[in-house]
Design a binder for these strands. Sequence first.
DNA 1: AAAACCATTGTACTAAGGTACAACCCGGGA
DNA 2: TCCCGGGTTGTACCTTAGTACAATGGTTTT
Lengths: 218, 218
Amino acid sequence: MTRKSDPLEKLKALPHVFVTDGEPIRSNWREAFPQAQLGYTRATSCEASVVWVLLPYTGDITPLIRRWQRMVGDAPVVALSDEPRDEEGMVALRAGVSGYCNGYASPAVLQQVAETVLQGGVWLGQSLLQKLVATTAQNLPKPAVAPLDWTLSLTEREVIVARAVASGASNKEIADQLNITERTVKAHLTAAFEKLRVRDRLQLTLLVNGITELKAPS
Amino acid sequence: MTRKSDPLEKLKALPHVFVTDGEPIRSNWREAFPQAQLGYTRATSCEASVVWVLLPYTGDITPLIRRWQRMVGDAPVVALSDEPRDEEGMVALRAGVSGYCNGYASPAVLQQVAETVLQGGVWLGQSLLQKLVATTAQNLPKPAVAPLDWTLSLTEREVIVARAVASGASNKEIADQLNITERTVKAHLTAAFEKLRVRDRLQLTLLVNGITELKAPS
DNA sequence: AAAACCATTGTACTAAGGTACAACCCGGGA
DNA sequence: TCCCGGGTTGTACCTTAGTACAATGGTTTT
């Protein structure tokens, strides 16, 4: 291992995953990212460079976005909308997306959005941002101390299992999905419980989903 | 893709102009844009692809930004700060900049920022945006489709127990807290599972915490 | 008053989650 | 080479969660 493993490089090597409601990959997406893949709705974990979620016309988009965020861990999630509206963009932003753009955006724009979000930036259209700024007076509370990253103390495998649990999967389901024994799943979980100082899968879930905080710096 | 007379192409052909307080062009700027030029403070008009304004440490930055916006017309203005702070970023945004980033950002990042703003986007760091979204959350319209309220189909007692479960409590703990039997807690939970169509306490937790959605309108 | 709903509890019983105490394989570093 | 950590699995056991099939008493609706 000569060079330090750059997380960005590793992320970039992964494919772009597009999440749709049954629709195949669009030509503009394919053109921007020849390696584009469709997201599998039932998966509980996913390796991706960037996850592009095509927003459905109706319904609450927050759970959809959150779900994929949990699945991919630190890969950025970008919301695609065929009818971009500022209100929808706000909801998406509040859900934590790293970008919000038109589902029919040109390949060039898509690539640029990808570049931006992969570097930790956020991509927005002008209109949305104007609204954002306009409605924000001068109050800037909430220093928002960066929440401790629970993944730090866990091994790769433990993180995967923890994410699956936190999305509601049973040990058996996780075992099947990862092609390992239920016993192994339990082993990973026991290790995770210990490291994160929680007593069971439910408290682990709260932690993974950011509802509770990591306590002692293990 | 051959494009016609695109205003974007014309804009891109112009040099990048850096506005400083007497400082020469920095190496990272030059590296990112070999054609980089310094902006003259006294000028009244300027042709530029992107105007990068290095913010002075003190004083009101709004007039400075506005001035250059007027000078360049439709070219985007990006604020550079050697000590980026969210408060300063907010001020810059309110002044109408298309981006706000570190004055010592790497050439790669600068180029990417340029790409973004040239396409009409806005480039921000994660932290600033989070703050923006957080403070704007209350003032903007709620999600178009109000998420179904899971409490509607439950009795008062079931809601209480469900909330307790969703915060990580065990049946025994809930029983003690409510001064009832563990058996009763189970009864309420079983009823809640049935009504909300979930199979166990973990999925109930996801529902209560808004991570998943209520499916069938029971 | 009867029906319907709610909160409560009991006795099983089954299923799932979690722990204890291991073992094996593999790759990398002292 | 030996040791160590990560991933894997086994057996046994205990605890917790959840279900089946009840019952009781209270309140509200019909």
